[in-house]
Amino acid sequence: MAPLLEVKDVSFKYPQASILENISFHLQPGEVFCLLGPNGCGKTTLLDCILGWLKPCSGQILLNGRTVQNMSAPQIARQVAYVPQIHEKTFPYLVRDIVIMGRASFIGPFASPSAEDVAITEKALDMVGISRLKDRSYTQLSGGEGQLVMVARALAQNSPLIVMDEPTAHLDYRHELIILETVVELVKQTGLAVLMATHVPNHGYYFENQGIKARAGLIKDRRIMASGKPSEVLSEHNLGKLYRIKTCIVDCQLESGERIKQVVPISTINNL
């Protein structure tokens, strides 16, 4: 079976600077791939290429075996949905009006959403657990609730892959966990695949601790420095190279008997 997402030897350049060189990885259904790397390393650029918003200079990106560059916007949207890092709120739309926009790729240019689209929207809201918010104005929601609305909108798209760009940036501990738990729940229940850019190595460990198929890829100096299982890739050595910091991996046993691993940052390193 062809992988859901296959990134083959992708390079991306702006006229002044090369951003990504020879990036390759792939993603299967039911898998979470965490993309890590310092600020400005090109994570968002890579996501934009996968979403068909930017065109790679060389290499190929395949969604379900089809080249993204040759697909139209609705065709791409049926394969991959997007949860943005910061959603710029403009008009105070109701939550349900936002979530139903996930149906756009199924609705003709001169048509409006049908009763079926409304039903799918309700289901998406329910899966994320925010049905109670559906008649609220989304400009009045907290950051965490707003991000859940974005996840629900992506779910309404019914695509097998969701791309998330730092979905937990500027969320508090509780809401960060709510987002992560939602992702785990969705992956377990629906076999969804998630590609997530993140600044938190512990997200990789979290997914592995939860027992879902998780991998991490580290981008350093325009290339993938390492990729594989989070507990193997997110080592003290690799994190030291990636972020120039000293870390300590701790392994502890919970009261339930479950063993979990986490990264603890210790200090910055200036020469390496």
């Binding site: 949207a77 949905a81 739309y93 756009a104 609705i107």
Partner: peptide
């Protein structure tokens, strides 16, 4: 209805599946 989607901004409107 498409104007709703366009008001999400170019990039999001594209990822939601409209040209």
């Amino acid at each position: 209805w498409r104007i709703n989607v366009l008001s999400m901004g170019d990039r999001e409107a594209h990822s939601l599946g409209i040209n």
